[in-house]
Design a protein around this nucleic acid. Structure first.
Lengths: 217, 217
DNA sequence: TGTACGAACGAACGTTCGTTCGTATTTCAT
DNA sequence: ATGAAATACGAACGAACGTTCGTTCGTACA
């Protein structure tokens, strides 16, 4: 909305590519710095230096530090949500849908571990309309996941009642806390990690292996 | 170690009480402010004002802002670990031990929701020996919890292998992420929340109610 | 009454922060 | 070739930060 004056002269594709490339480059550097030291301690000077750009030059791409964080979070959550929608297409079994959701989430953030931290840890670092805009995507992501959880719970034998909201938040807890301890490339592949999280969420510690299906990979 | 110069003239008990009370009062105010705005954004001026103390007066109780956060985290994790050890005493069934652990954790932080955030969200805000000292307590807490998880997994039918570390981290994820969404006094009592988290962790979404025991409260 | 000391304070320190300004340099349609 | 727009930069800004300094107040003990 603020980036690139919306007045559209159909600039040469060379320029635009160069502009977008540079923007992506700066955002990637910013994501790394924020993941390492946190949003508040990440200074614009530090990001500029990491990106190989002057301090003042940063303000050609964002009008503020907060806007920079917004772009990082907006892009990450948007990508996460849209790839999830794609992957759910054509899958009917809610259990298989849930496994797909976990696979998608883990795969995305295993490939972008810095983005995971810049999103999970800095959820409250935005304010005002920037915060609300990101929050809306997160809400959509939550609603989609919760609908899967509800379908799973609906086909379950009537036992102790399970709160839908709580169950969904337990799942997000496991996924969002990953940035604290998971190191891609050590011990577990993203696919294996996703499988174990799904198993854990669906069957728990005591769950009988009989109820489990499709979990090699 | 830094608080109260160790050179001991046997000060009157009146003085000492007053000193400790004031220290606790300031730490409580600091915990609230940090929980609300985050450690980096929480200025010493803001904490001083919230505690009703002058800015310079703060430095009679800590020699730095970091030391202040250290005291908050050290006290919280120490209390958590020691109460856990107490409550596990005399309990043999590992499943019941785990339920006790979750109850203890949820109860403590439901009563100190600001402390939960100041601990969970600011795990990396300390550095050097202060960080290491807190980390050691967290390690002990983790080791104790993991030993319970291992005993549960040991008496489980041999099915799909479950990684002990991953399983333990899933539990801590659910507990540590609570500060993001749980509001004490709304909808769920701490005891009911603890029960549902235990159920979720032990039996998962698909777990048969038959394997569940002792979960009314 | 005089001395010593912990507790608390207002004021100021030096540093770092996010941001802005004025000005070069490059790009490119005309 | 030319002029305007886009891009980049060094320098500087005011504000806020954590911390320190010198002082004052109240009280316990000689």
């Amino acid at each position: 909305m603020f980036d690139r004056g919306t007045g559209g002269q159909g600039a040469s594709s060379d320029n635009r590519e160069s502009y977008d490339d540079r923007l992506n480059h700066i955002l990637a550097a910013a994501t790394d710095v924020i993941a390492r030291v946190g949003y508040e301690k990440a200074s614009m000077r530090q990001v500029a230096s990491a990106a190989g750009v002057s301090l003042a030059g940063m303000y050609h791409y964002f009008d503020s530090k907060e806007r920079m964080l917004f772009l990082i979070q907006f892009r990450a959550f948007s990508a996460l949500l849209s790839t999830l929608k794609e992957k759910l297409h054509g899958v009917d079994d809610p259990v298989e849908q849930l496994r797909g959701m976990v696979r998608n989430h883990v795969a995305y953030f295993a490939a972008n571990i810095a983005a995971l931290k810049a999103c999970s840890h800095e959820l409250d670092s935005l304010s005002g309309s920037a915060y609300e805009e990101v929050r809306q995507i997160r809400r959509d992501y939550y609603a989609l996941t919760r609908s899967i959880v509800e379908r799973i719970l609906a086909q379950r034998p009537n036992g102790v009642a399970i709160d839908h909201h709580l169950a969904t938040m337990c799942l997000f807890s496991m996924l969002n806390w990953l940035y604290r301890w998971y190191q891609p490339g050590r011990r577990r592949s993203p696919a294996a990690l996703a499988n174990q999280i799904s198993d854990q969420f669906l069957n728990g510690l005591l769950g009988s292996p009989a109820t489990r299906n499709g979990s090699t990979g």
